[in-house]
């Protein structure tokens, strides 16, 4: 079950203390370069290695690798299976497995995709592992995002455990009333509505009260918002953000415009 904080890990490293927008820009720039940069293997490897180095500097490399493995191993296996054995561009065959032949082109393609996904994942973990979601939301607000939309980004995180807990009690209540959740397909399909609907109804009924409570605390007030704790930013970080974006756009242009 996902906790309130998701996979964020608190810490005091340099990375943790960077402004959330700097990290977000890094992730975006890196992902753009990984998928859109010139020189397929180069663009896949370099941002990924940089991201891994950054994670290591913050003591997050091990957990980063663990999460990456969890997400990517099934994908990697399938990629090798599907493209190694069945890719339509397979021409040179390097291996024979039972009745299947493993093709070189397919394997290379699969490895490239795996590298890209790994690099993209490392780059996003640089942001996600080191940034408290509430700080990211505040950073976006300070940058001009309307507080109304910041609410949409911030509040679901804490509501998730609340609604999750309700599922268990609804299930218990319905089963006590004779609802069958095992058995043939038809029976399970019939159980769908009685389990989903009460949760949806109770969640939706709360919506009105939530909206009222927000309004009463000045949610729609036209005042300029102030913050209890300001986020630390610096001019070199601002420079860095623009620099990273410029690099990403430049490399994109190099691949598509000046190829």
């Amino acid at each position: 079950m996902v906790s309130h904080f998701g996979i964020f890990l608190p810490g005091c490293s340099r990375l943790h203390r960077l402004h959330p927008l700097t990290k977000l820009t890094f992730t975006l720039a890196a992902v753009i370069i990984v998928f859109g940069g010139p020189g397929k293997w180069f663009s896949a490897l370099v941002p990924g290695l940089i991201a891994l180095a950054i994670l290591a500097s913050a003591g997050l490399a091990r957990i980063g690798l663990r999460i990456t493995l969890r997400i990517l191993v099934p994908l990697a296996l399938m990629l090798l299976f599907v493209h190694g054995l069945f890719s339509p561009v397979n021409q040179n065959f390097i291996l024979q497995l039972a009745i299947f032949k493993v093709g070189r082109e397919g394997v290379l393609y699969a490895v490239l995709v795996i590298l890209r996904l790994t690099a993209a994942l490392f780059s996003s973990l640089v942001l996600v592992l080191s940034t408290h979601p509430a700080h990211l939301v505040q950073a976006l607000e300070e940058a001009g995002l309307s507080p109304r939309f910041a609410y949409l980004f911030g509040s679901p995180l804490l509501l998730i455990p609340q609604l999750s807990g309700r599922i268990q009690s609804i299930r218990a209540a319905q089963q006590a009333r004779g609802l069958e959740i095992q058995g043939n397909l038809l029976r399970r399909v019939k159980a769908l509505f009685p389990l989903v609907a009460p949760l949806a109804f109770s969640a939706l009924v709360d919506v009105e009260e939530r909206a009222l409570a927000l309004e009463v605390r000045g949610f729609s007030a036209p005042h300029t918002k102030t913050y209890l704790n300001a986020l630390q930013d610096s001019s070199w970080q601002r420079l860095l953000r623009w620099g990273m974006l410029a690099l990403a756009v430049g490399l994109l242009a190099k691949r598509f415009v000046w190829a």
């Binding site: 109304r148 509501l159 609604l163 599922i167 969640a203 939706l204 919506v207 909206a211 927000l214």
Partner: peptide, 29 residues
Amino acid sequence: DFSTLTLALMAVAIVLNIVLGQVVSLLKL
């Protein structure tokens, strides 16, 4: 379209999206 009521609805709906997957895996559908 984006009154406070709608925003509260959307926040709840986002959570429903994330959480209802549990029900489905329970029923193995």
